[in-house]
């Protein structure tokens, strides 16, 4: 039986929209404006302003990944422990914001955090001092956590839901207390979910430029902003491509770590 032709549309799709564009990025990354081969676009990552942007991106995305994990894990545990009708409702609540456009949601945060925004308006009403919330690294982290939290909750929830209750009951029967059960049974078994959650939060947070533009007032330059500006305003596609490829190295590293832990691919089931 030859059913290979069934995969043809996907192959065409992958070639046209993934492989070819990627090859173009590689081509631009390895050439200069005259079309000659060069490694300069890669090495440009080493300049102080690019390193600073990369460092800041790594730092902010790391912080938001940790916050996401700390928020998502207890939530996922509560969801698994509670009864089913409630669970699906809460899962729906987690997914619900994603029905709305990502840009709009981030712009809504702008309105909330602004000087004369909703939050400061409430503070003024309560006669509390106003705070400068927007255009700070904290606002960017907030935007990242808000936008990417569902990508942490769902894989962890999936993995936790699949853990056989009998394993946990056995641990309790054999005298383990709640903390021991969690540390020795639940946590190790949920690592695939955690790892895939971390990847799914860390990678988009590392490369974002929209969140830092809208909530950072273009004052805080992340590596995503540098690359975006090379393509848009500086019109140096070669440098932008070179930097993108270097950034991919970091993404590949996090993918490799993820695959080491997540051998069965359990956590990737969203």
């Amino acid at each position: 039986m030859n059913k290979k032709w069934l995969s043809a549309p996907y192959l065409v799709w992958a070639v046209a929209f993934i492989i070819l564009p990627l090859l173009m990025v590689v081509y631009y990354g390895l050439t200069d404006k005259t079309g000659a081969f060069t490694l300069e676009n890669f090495l440009a990552m080493g300049t102080p302003e690019h390193l600073k942007a990369l460092g800041l991106s790594l730092l902010l995305s790391l912080i938001s990944t940790i916050i996401c994990l700390l928020l998502a894990y207890p939530l996922a545990m509560i969801l698994v422990a509670s009864n089913t009708s409630k669970t699906s409702f809460v899962v729906l609540l987690v997914i619900l914001p994603m029905w709305m456009n990502f840009l709009l949601r981030t712009m809504a945060w702008q309105t909330l955090l602004e000087k004369n925004g909703v939050i400061n308006g409430i503070l003024t009403f309560l006669h509390l001092p106003n705070h400068n919330l927007i255009n700070t690294p904290g606002a960017i982290v907030l935007g990242m956590v808000y936008n990417f939290l569902p990508f942490m909750v769902l894989p962890i929830y999936n993995v936790l839901a699949k853990i056989d209750k009998n394993v946990i009951n056995a641990a309790r029967d054999l005298g383990a207390n709640g903390i021991q059960t969690f540390c020795k049974i639940t946590l190790p078994l949920s690592i695939p979910g955690i790892v895939s959650g971390i990847t799914m939060v860390f990678v988009p947070a590392l490369t974002t430029f929209v969140i830092s533009n809208l909530l950072g007032g273009s004052k805080i330059l992340l590596i995503g902003n540098v690359i975006e500006q090379e393509f848009t305003t500086a019109s140096n596609w070669h440098l932008g491509s070179g930097l993108s490829l270097m950034l991919m190295v970091f993404i590949i590293i996090s993918m490799v770590i993820s695959s080491l832990f997540d051998k069965d691919g359990e956590g990737s089931a969203l």
Binding site: E49, A53, L221, N225, V226, Q229, T233, A234, N236
Partner: peptide
């Protein structure tokens, strides 16, 4: 243009 963009990037990343 390239030089100016470079200078601007230095401003922004500072």
């Amino acid at each position: 243009d390239e030089n100016l963009n470079e200078l601007w990037k230095q401003v922004k990343s500072n």
